[in-house]
Amino acid sequence: MGGDNRYLGLAYVAPYIIGLLVFTAFPFLASLYLSFTDYDLLSKPEWTGLDNYERLMTRDRTFNKSLRVTLLYVFMTVPLKLAFALLVAVVLNYRLKAIGFFRTAYYVPSILGGSIAIAVLWRYIFAEVGLVNMGLEAIGLEPVNWFGDPQNALFTLTLLRCWQFGSAMVIFLAALQSVDKSLYEASSIDGANKWHQFRFITVPLITPVIFFNLIMQTVQAFQEFNGPYIITDGGPLKSTYLLPLYIYDKAFKSFDMGYASAIAWILFVIIMVLTLIAFWSSKKWVYYAGDKRS
């Protein structure tokens, strides 16, 4: 506000600055340092240069497997979840009377999603004699070994996250409702069908939200922990052993802090590179209307 001391604002954001330095910036740099050391909590960190990274890249087969599983998980979960969220949002956006009811119903799984109880539930309904297989048998299909078979386990975890498409859907819905209705009317006079309208009016106008959801969901998917930890414990045959699980085991079970930090940094670099690619490519496909806040 005018006339105030120009340092007054700094006083208000001071808590944030302290938090940023102590709980974000310092740990961020410290983990980079630790990733070049051997540190078992008992003696001081011992500088080993690139040893950790060299071991990870060339000799650690668990890391190799875990990295592949993680990438597969992210590339399955994110597109599926977003496509689902967008599809349901588009259907809900037709002037339906009960829109509020459905929005709530579809949002509930997202609200509860992170809970351990939901992971427990997933374990039960996808058990060999669980709800899903009982349902499949009732309609005459073969039961599936959802979590016991390494071929299926990762996909079953993906389903758990796709089931929680609600929050992405609510964001899509808010964006869809802000699209100017007169654009649709004008285009239908010009003879555009529903698909053309969706493809050439709706999608371009909501690209900022697609972009936002894409980034947030990707960053999150790379850090998935609760699902595999509770449901499969990384198995069978490490087919759901995502990198956050490996980091947790290395850091808090074998207390190999240096090595765990190196894995964390590789994960961070992958996320960062993908985010940067998304930002860089966004200039080509994300459309920002001149007068709208982003």
Binding site: T24, F28, S31, F222, F268
Partner: peptide, 16 residues
Amino acid sequence: TLLLPNVVTRIPQYLL
């Protein structure tokens, strides 16, 4: 910070 994955700060936070 919004985009920073917690996984990269977790270990030093624990040590702190």
